[in-house]
Nucleic acid binder design. Structure first.
Length: 524
RNA sequence: GGCGGCGUAGCUCAGCGGUUAGAGCAGCGGCUUCAUAAGCCGCGUGUCGCUGGUUCGAUCCCAGCCGCCGCUACCA
């Protein structure tokens, strides 16, 4: 195990104020595809997700429901996990920031930064709403026309003592860091925004609040709790044992990639590395700010504003129930470019599902299996040791795999998937039509057997290539045959270098009436 | 206002100095029937946002303009 390269992946932790929506699911799937791909390629992967619970809103929401904050958080965490399970997200851990391990690690971290001299006491002055019992930003007040957006009352100017993190001291070091690590911020377009922001001016950040019971106490002054980002970002280290399991932390840190929404790149690309510098740990290696997905109206083609108050939020579970978790994964990875924004519409979803999954992949699987079972029972005798002929006329399989990998590693999932269809699956359907094994079998049963043997190959290749994207369907395809390489051990290289078939090819799929169950039943 | 991005077929996008600008989906026509009424073949005269410039040559480089969008810090 020690010689395996390790790979530590995280996603943003989510607010448990409401259930997960399609945007949060998009992020988790994108991260999961990467995690699954890296595992296949021999990395020792740790994939961390979680919920961000130390906020005043949690307390308010819990109170509204007549619950204890902790109980509320746990219930919400269960709801999140339920959705992630339905989407077959392979996270290794799920951290709740209300957990003791997070509290302990967090306190140790802030203490360290304090001792290193990067935290000082000052005071925060801003617009305070007495109804909300919290400070409002200039922007919030301005947008609401000079009043509190919640209470419609004018805020008061208020000043309160607090602790600051001396972010401004890290300006030069951050700029040097970006220069030395040009790939740190992904995608590239986000990079300029951050660099110019840091170049302009870095302001110290207020990292404490007073008068709160819920949250993490500041160890060097327990009348304060740690405020927002200084707490939330730390889940990435407390989740792997910072402050509680030194050895484990040393093994996994720094993170190879943080997957986050593009709206919070600033905190991850400027504040977070500076916090790491201040605490004397390495900064993360890469931050990937993905795009957003929007709901699109089928009739008008317009983007719909989803909001809790309007009650029109699309629940991922509705989509999963109507189609499947695999279909959900496929749609968002194929249809929405991960670095950019994308749209979801029910109509489009059904189109993509039927066209790519049911008609193309699913039907290819069905027709090949059916031909074999119809004419040869379950065994293609004499195929042991035989190598299938290459039927891909679009270019070499080697090139196809290289292209898919390149896209996968750049998180261009939509392009990776398009390549799999274009270079592996489509040619197989064409080959079947060209060779017509259903006719050939009547004249030359041996020749038809060969054709079918050749047709199994793109199914094997497709299953391997699709494993990170639609792991369940890929597994069903792969396990329908007695391929020599165990499913758990397949790698992308196996697509090109086919492990020798020691036994004659055999169908292991469940075949009621000689027909396989449809992988993706067509939706009317 | 400042910095940055985008504008390519009905839709989603690829291409980013050089033969007739490409894919998928949708649409239309034909073939086929092994298969999930699936598959295959054929069909696009698109001002590559507009106007100039650089170049032997620009969708791809530069400038200006028009239209969208992001960031411009303490809500995560």
């Amino acid at each position: 195990m020690a010689d395996k390269p390790r790979f530590f992946i995280t996603t943003a932790i989510d607010y448990p104020n409401s259930r997960p929506h399609i945007g949060t699911a998009f992020e988790k799937i994108g991260a999961d595809v990467q995690a699954r791909y890296r595992r296949m390629q021999g990395y020792d992967v740790f994939f961390l997700m979680g919920n961000d619970e130390n906020t005043i809103k949690v307390v308010k929401r819990a109170r509204e429901l007549g619950k204890e904050p902790q109980a509320y958080c746990n219930e919400m965490a269960d709801q999140f996990k339920e959705v992630w399970r339905a989407l077959n997200i392979s996270n290794d851990d799920f951290i709740q920031t209300s957990e003791p391990r997070h509290h302990a690690g967090c306190q140790q971290f802030i203490q360290k930064v304090f001792e290193n001299g990067h935290i000082y006491k000052g005071s925060y002055e801003g617009w305070y709403c007495e109804g909300c019992e919290e400070f409002k930003t200039e922007k919030q007040i301005k947008e609401a026309g000079g009043v509190c957006p919640n209470h419609n009352t004018p805020p008061v100017r208020r000043s309160e003592p607090c602790y600051y993190f001396a972010l401004s001291k890290f300006q030069d070091r951050l700029l040097r860091f970006y220069e030395d690590n040009p790939d740190f911020i992904q995608p590239e377009s986000r990079r300029n925004e951050i660099v110019s922001l840091v170049q302009t001016e870095l302001l110290d950040v207020n990292i404490t609040r007073s008068g709160q019971n819920w949250g993490i106490r500041v160890p060097f002054d327990d009348s304060y709790t740690i405020y927002v980002w200084f707490d939330a970002l730390l889940n990435y280290v407390t989740g792997i044992g910072y402050g509680t399991e030194a050895e484990r932390f040393a093994h996994w840190w720094p993170a190879d990639v943080h997957f986050i929404g593009k709206d919070i790149t600033r905190f991850h690309c400027a504040l977070w590395p500076a916090m790491c510098f201040a605490a004397g740990i390495a900064p993360p290696r890469r931050v990937f700010g993905h795009g957003f997905v929007y709901r699109k109206d089928d009739a008008s083609g317009d983007r719909i504003k989803e909001s809790k108050t309007l009650g029109n939020v699309t629940d991922p579970m509705d989509i999963i129930t109507r189609f499947s978790g695999e279909a959900f994964r496929y749609y968002f990875m194929r249809e929405c470019p991960f670095p950019g924004d994308g749209d979801f519409s029910w109509l489009r979803f059904a189109e993509v599902y039927n066209s790519d999954l049911a008609n193309n992949l699913g039907n290819l699987y069905s027709r090949v299996l059916r031909q074999i079972s119809l004419n040869y029972g379950t065994v293609l005798e004499g195929t042991a040791g035989q190598a299938p002929e290459v039927i891909n006329s679009e270019g070499s399989v080697h090139t196809a795999v290289a292209e898919v990998q390149q896209h996968l590693e750049a998180c261009q999932y939509n392009q990776a998937l398009q390549k799999i269809w274009l270079l592996i699956l489509d040619p197989a359907n064409r080959y079947a039509d060209r060779t017509e094994p259903w006719k050939l079998v009547k004249q030359d049963k041996e020749a038809a057997k060969k054709v079918l043997y050749n047709l199994v190959e793109p199914l094997r290749q497709g299953a391997i290539l699709l494993k990170p994207f639609i792991p369940r369907a890929a597994e069903v395809i792969y396990r329908s045959f007695n391929f020599s390489r165990p499913w758990e051990e397949v790698r992308y290289e196996d697509v090109v270098t086919r492990p020798a078939q020691t036994e004659p090819l055999r169908l292991l799929a469940d075949l009621p009436d000689g027909k396989p169950k449809p992988l993706f039943p067509r939706i009317a």
